[in-house]
Nucleic acid binder design. Sequence first.
DNA 1: TGACCTTTGAAGGCT
DNA 2: AGCCTTCAAAGGTCA
Length: 547
Amino acid sequence: SNLVGAGRGSGGGDDLGAPDELIPFQDEGDEQDKGAGRGSAHGDLDELKSSLVNESENRSGSASGSDSEAERPPQQPRESFQKPRDYLAEVRRQQDGGFFKGPPYPSYPFLMIPELGSPYLPNGALSPGGARTVSASCFGLALVLTAESNKVPVVQHPHHMHPLTPLITYSNDHFSPGSPPSHLSPEIDPKTGIPRPPHPSELSPYYPLSPGAIGQIPHPLGWLVPQQGQPVYSIPPGGFRHPYPALAMNASMSSLMSSRFSPHMVPPSAHGLHPSGIPHPTIVSPIVKQEPTQPSMSPGGNSKSPITVKKEEEKKPHIKKPLNAFMLYMKEMRAKVVAECTLKESAAINQILGRRWHSLSREEQAKYYELARKERQLHSQLYPTWSARDNYRKREKQPQQQIQETGNSVASKSKKLCVQYLPTEKPCDSPASSHGSMLDSPATPSTALASPAAPAATHSEQAQPLSLTTKPEARAQLSLHSAAFLSSKAASSSSSLTSQSPLLSRPIPFTTALLTSPPSFPTAIPSQAALAVLQAQPLSLVTKPAE
DNA sequence: TGACCTTTGAAGGCT
DNA sequence: AGCCTTCAAAGGTCA
């Protein structure tokens, strides 16, 4: 009850839908980052080790790590700030040193460095160390980046992607969720309040720009591009991948468009164009990405021959889903993370990004929700008849059916063992995990916060975060982590990933952090009833033997 | 070569 | 209403 009360208390009121709640929690988010900074300030190894030794004390909230401990609002989950350092210390102790590429910087998980100067280093060299990425680390990013940026110009542009794509940022400097800057603000229809779709006449003249031409001109979104003097306009051999239709459209549109040009984007073609003549980044050539067509399938009652149907389907452009907030965030931050780490595997990067996502303040997340909302809006305007279902593959069997039929063997055989690539950057910075975040993920931060559009979290929803996800494999992953935790002392170092799994103590901080309600997710504060469930569930997760 | 992994969120279908 | 599934990005990994 204390937690619940505390969580609500400083949140700026119980009216979680109040728009102004962003401010207090933003402050908390800042506080969190400041706390991280403080942590790093006196984050020497001795302290870390001692904090690890005193883990139980920390868990009980008696950590003495910070001078400002007493100043921290009661709802601040102290161990959220303590744990990662513990993890790091623990992991560092157990590892051979190869995992960490740079000086330990224990407070990294909270060191949310805004820009780090030029995090996007678009020369695609791999880590000269040549170490396989799995054994690389993303920790100590600040120092590591400083120390290694000279030799690790890591960002590897996807060979099929315009190198500028990851450079498009929605940084704080350029984007404000509630009131985008004028250069970013779309032309709003004064009647509907909806960003006015760009008139074809505004766009078309600029679309046919040749790659060569575009490579010569200054970037129209220069404000979005880190000033690095990098040849960001180099067009990959694959051709014209990133047409930057934004040249004449309004900036909001352009940011969406330019940031969304798919690696599979093809030069504007007749069938790839929206009726308005706007090739949206979500249009993908069916040549590149085809719906798996089954020749034997003939749409019900369709007199057309399968071949004809197939051809028509091939002609049909593949319109991709608009990116959601997290996808936008990933798109922006991936290069940054990759630059900060030696990791290349997207799965690992995504884990980091997922945690970072949760570590964002509501306001920061709101940027991306707003951006995603605009993206969906634009998408729906461009493709009013499009349905997400259109992109569904045609499956003979639903995966669920397969699982039911084959039982657990599916997970154990057909799927790779879930691997925790990285130490928890933050013990429970994903307290809400997927669903938890959704609790606070209004489709429109500005509107949903003030409207009932954002459904209040139910108890079950609040409880869901505990299970991280309902996916069976995720549960297996948790179990794996638990097993790793339970057997951490005996863990062999030969198994690079699992034995290195830093989630040695994840289940515990996960629980505790959840119970202490993360500052960034005030609405996820569980009720007492939910708390009881939460308290009970982790045990089952922890003790559930890995199958 | 293509599925998988991994993340969150949106959407659609099913119960 | 709630749950489940799929897809969106990304690129290394693996069968």
